[in-house]
């Protein structure tokens, strides 16, 4: 039997039992998704897909990569994107396509020609299923990279604590990319606010190893070269123990247990400056 014959048979079957197939398909997929997607929405999505596949089959046969399947592909990519954004797994997404095989099996597998047509159709669906997985993964990656960017922006505020004193509350792990962002922001804020004191608070940094310490030192040295005093505060007891155990040297960089202590020290020095100003010393 020729491929054309098989296609003919497929199209006929798909047209004849359209409503049955669609209902079964929708219910099979619906069971998989366990009601996390409304029946109406699912039915709408799948019937659109069904029509697209049917149309492409009628026009060009079983070549899933052919141009007549462009609409099907774009529908599938859209579907996968939606699923990925709503937190469905990639298996659930791919099953939406593969379920059509199960639906067709009873009505085609009866005789030899039907079985042949079924196998060819299954191959087409495999291709389409792979496409959904690919689109799903791509969407996930986009989400992850945009979140990473947002995190970088969100997690590094530089706040003005007092006239001439800025604070950097660090939360989360400190890698070289974040150090770069923190350093850039801190130094720019020093210039913008005309500040002479900076306090880096590491209460929110879970662990300090040699790498993190190195990054902190770099930031402090850079701030110093711009002419600002830099203090590190918020060193928790465990962190202090690790720092000593690792033999990390902070050199002559002042460190404090709490932000309030560091702030008090900074304010004292700022006040000293102002005092000298008033007495006409400077």
């Amino acid at each position: 039997m020729t491929t054309e014959g098989n296609t003919q048979l497929l199209v006929e079957t798909l047209v004849a039992q359209r409503d049955d197939f669609l209902a079964q398909w929708t219910s099979t997929v619906g069971e998989d998704l366990q009601g996390r997607l409304s029946k109406a929405e699912l039915g709408h999505e799948l019937s659109e897909l069904y029509e697209a596949i049917l149309g492409a089959l009628t026009a060009s046969g079983l070549d899933g990569r052919g141009e007549h399947f462009a609409e099907t592909r774009s529908l599938l990519i859209e579907l996968s994107r939606n699923r990925a954004r709503r937190g469905f797994t990639s298996t659930e997404t791919a099953r939406s396509v593969f379920a059509l095989k199960e639906v067709l099996e009873p009505s085609l597998a009866g005789d030899e020609q039907g079985a042949q047509a079924y196998l060819q159709f299954a191959r087409l669906l495999d291709d389409l299923g792979l496409l959904t997985t690919e689109a799903y993964i791509r969407t996930r990656e986009e989400i992850i990279s945009s979140q990473a960017e947002q995190l970088l922006e969100l997690a590094t505020p530089v706040v003005k604590l007092w006239d001439g004193v800025v604070g950097v509350p660090l939360v989360g792990t400190l890698d070289s990319a974040r150090t770069q962002v923190v350093m850039e922001k801190l130094l720019q804020t020093l210039v913008d606010t005309n500040s002479t004191h900076a306090i880096i608070d590491i209460t929110g940094v879970p662990t300090v190893d040699t790498q993190v310490a190195q990054h902190l030192l770099k930031t402090v040295v850079a701030a110093r070269m711009m002419g600002a005093q830099c203090t590190i505060s918020g060193i928790r007891p465990q962190i202090a123990q690790t720092i000593v155990a690792l033999g990390i040297e902070f050199g002559d960089i002042p460190t404090n247990a709490s932000l309030s202590d560091a702030l008090r020290q900074a304010l004292k020095e700022v006040a000293l400056d102002a005092d000298d100003d008033v007495r006409g010393l400077l």
């Binding site: 850039e184 130094l187 720019q188 210039v191 040295v221 850079a222 070269m225 711009m226 002419g227």
Partner: peptide, 16 residues
């Protein structure tokens, strides 16, 4: 000293 310059010097390992 500009922020960018300070950062470059730190990366070069100079602490002045």
């Amino acid at each position: 000293m500009r922020p960018a310059v300070a950062m470059t010097l730190v990366e070069l390992g100079l602490s002045l």
